[in-house]
Simulated scan of single mutants.
Amino acid sequence: MKKEANKITRKEAIKKMGKYAALTAVGTFLILNPQKSQAQSGTDPCDPGGGLDPDC
């Protein structure tokens, strides 16, 4: 006698994939948050070649 493998339906698989996709999106957003990246960049927009800030 052979044991049957644990099988899940297509609907259950899609549901699980959706959870992983949501978790990945949140993690990516936290890592690549634009405000946090800009604060850590160390470049001054008023430096030559640092950006096109009209207030400088």
Rank of each mutant, 00 (worst) to 15 (best):
G18N: 10
L30N: 03
K16F: 13
Q35S: 12
F29P: 05
A22L: 13
I14P: 04
G18A: 08
M17V: 05
A21W: 06
G27P: 02
G27T: 01
R10N: 10
K19G: 05
N33F: 03
Q35Y: 07
M17N: 14
A5V: 06
E12N: 02
F29D: 11
K19C: 03
A5E: 15
I8Q: 03
K7I: 09
F29A: 15
Q38I: 05
E12C: 00
M17Q: 15
T9E: 00
L23D: 06
R10Y: 06
Q38D: 13
K15P: 01
A5M: 09
P34C: 03
L30R: 00
N6S: 13
N33Q: 04
Y20C: 06
Q38R: 14
K36F: 12
K36H: 11
E12D: 05
A13E: 10
V26W: 00
K36Q: 13
L23Q: 06
L23S: 08
K16L: 12
E12M: 02
L30E: 02
K36S: 11
N6P: 09
K11N: 10
Q35N: 08
K11R: 11
N6F: 05
Y20L: 13
I8G: 00
A39W: 15
K36G: 11
T28P: 03
E4A: 13
K19V: 05
K19Q: 06
E12S: 00
S37T: 13
L30Q: 02
K36N: 09
K16Q: 09
Q38Y: 11
A39M: 15
T9P: 02
A22I: 06
Y20G: 06
A39I: 07
S37K: 12
K7T: 10
L30G: 04
Y20V: 13
T28N: 10
R10M: 06
A21G: 10
A39L: 15
T28D: 07
R10W: 06
S37Q: 10
Q38C: 07
N33L: 00
K15E: 12
R10D: 11
L32N: 01
A13L: 07
T24V: 15
A25Y: 01
Q35L: 14
K11L: 12
K15I: 04
L30H: 01
K7V: 14
T28A: 15
K7W: 06
G27K: 02
T24Y: 04
N33D: 03
T28G: 14
Q38M: 10
K11Y: 07
K19D: 02
L23M: 08
K7F: 06
F29H: 06
V26R: 00
A25S: 04
A13W: 07
I14W: 14
A5Q: 10
Y20I: 14
A25V: 02
A21I: 14
G27S: 08
I14L: 15
R10S: 07
A22P: 01
G18E: 11
G27A: 13
M17C: 06
I31V: 15
A5W: 09
A25C: 06
A22M: 08
E12Y: 01
A13R: 09
A5T: 05
E12T: 01
S37I: 14
T24L: 11
K36W: 10
A25R: 00
Q35M: 12
K16D: 09
L32I: 00
L23V: 08
L23P: 01
E4D: 15
V26N: 01
K11M: 07
K7Q: 11
I14N: 13
A21S: 08
G27L: 12
V26T: 00
A25D: 03
M17A: 13
I8P: 00
K11P: 04
